[in-house]
Design a protein around this nucleic acid. Structure first.
Lengths: 144, 144
DNA sequence: TAAGATTGATGTTTCAATCTTT
DNA sequence: AAAGATTGAAACATCAATCTTA
C-alpha cells in the first residue's frame, strides 16, 4: 500500500490536467466570443431539458454537475435573474425546491449548442482520428 | 468546414471534463485534508525549483501554468506573504520582475510531494493498468 | 439527528484600466 | 505602439453558520 505512482501515471495525470485546462479555456473563449454565457449554464440547461418534465431538484443538479450545494444555489440565482430557470416549491418535500427550465432557457440552450459543438470539433475532434477518439473516451471512462 | 463532431468526439469531450474535474477535486481535497496549500502553489514551487537558478519571470510562469497575467500577479502576492517566493527586480529588463523560490518554498514543495504523489496513485494509478496509463498519456498528448 | 437549501463574510478570479519600460 | 506587470472594482467561489422540514 501507498505504492508510489509509476512515471507513466504521473505523466497521464499531468497531461489530463493540462489538456483539459487548454480545451476548456478554448471552448469558454469561443462561447464568450459569441456573447454567450459560460459552459456551466449550458450544462444546467441541458440537464434540465433532458430531465423528463424540464425540472430537477437542486441536489440532483449538484450531483450531475459535480458542484457544491451552495454553488448550485447561487448559480440558480443568476440564471433565474436572466429568466432561464424558475424556482418552484416542491410538492413531495417541503424542504426542497424544484428548478424548472423556462422557454427562454430552452431557446438559450438551442442557441448555444451550434457554437459549443463547433468548438468541441475544433479543439478535440480535429486533433484526433476517429479511432483515437474512441480509445480516449474508453480510457477516460475507466477513471470515472 | 464546420463539420460537426462525431458522437465519440462529444463523448470524449464530456468524459475529459468530468474525469479531470473528479480527479482534481479529489487531489485538492487530499492536500487540504493534510493542511497543505492548493495544487497551484505546488505547480509554482516545482516550476521555480526546476528552473536553473530557482527563479522565473512572471510571464514565464504564466505560460507554463496556463494562467492569466493578473492571476499570476495575485498568486505571487499570496505566496510572497507566506514567504514561499520572493520578488526581485529584473536586471535584464527594467519593466520586469523575477520570482525566486525561498528555502521555505523548497521545504513546502518537498512536504507536499509525498501527499500529492499518493493522491495521484489513488485517483489515477489505481484505476488503470500500466498499459492503459501509457495509452492514455499518449492520447492526451495529441490534444496538447 | 440528518437532508435540502440558503446566506453573510471572506477569499479568489475576472474585467478594464493603468503604469513603466522597451 | 507593444510587452511586462500591477490594481480597483465587480463577479464568482468557498467557508462556516443558519434555517426549515423529514
Amino acid at each position: 500500500m501507498d505504492k508510489p505512482p509509476s512515471e507513466p501515471t504521473i505523466l497521464a495525470w499531468a497531461r489530463l490536467i493540462k489538456a483539459q485546462a487548454r480545451a476548456l479555456q478554448a471552448v469558454e473563449a469561443d462561447l464568450k466570443a459569441e456573447g454567450l454565457p459560460p459552459l456551466a449554464w449550458y450544462d444546467v440547461l441541458l440537464e434540465l431539458k433532458q430531465a423528463g418534465d424540464g425540472s430537477l431538484r437542486p441536489y440532483e443538479l449538484e450531483k450531475r454537475l459535480l458542484l457544491a450545494q451552495h454553488n448550485v444555489s447561487r448559480l440558480m440565482d443568476r440564471m433565474e435573474r436572466k429568466k432561464l430557470v424558475e424556482r418552484k416549491p416542491c410538492d413531495a418535500d417541503g424542504r426542497g425546491q424544484v428548478m424548472v427550465i423556462t422557454e427562454q432557457g430552452r431557446a438559450m440552450q438551442k442557441k448555444m449548442w451550434p457554437v459549443y459543438r463547433a468548438s468541441i470539433q475544433r479543439h478535440i475532434g480535429a486533433k484526433l482520428t476517429e479511432a483515437e477518439t474512441s480509445r480516449l473516451a474508453a480510457l477516460l471512462q475507466r477513471l470515472l
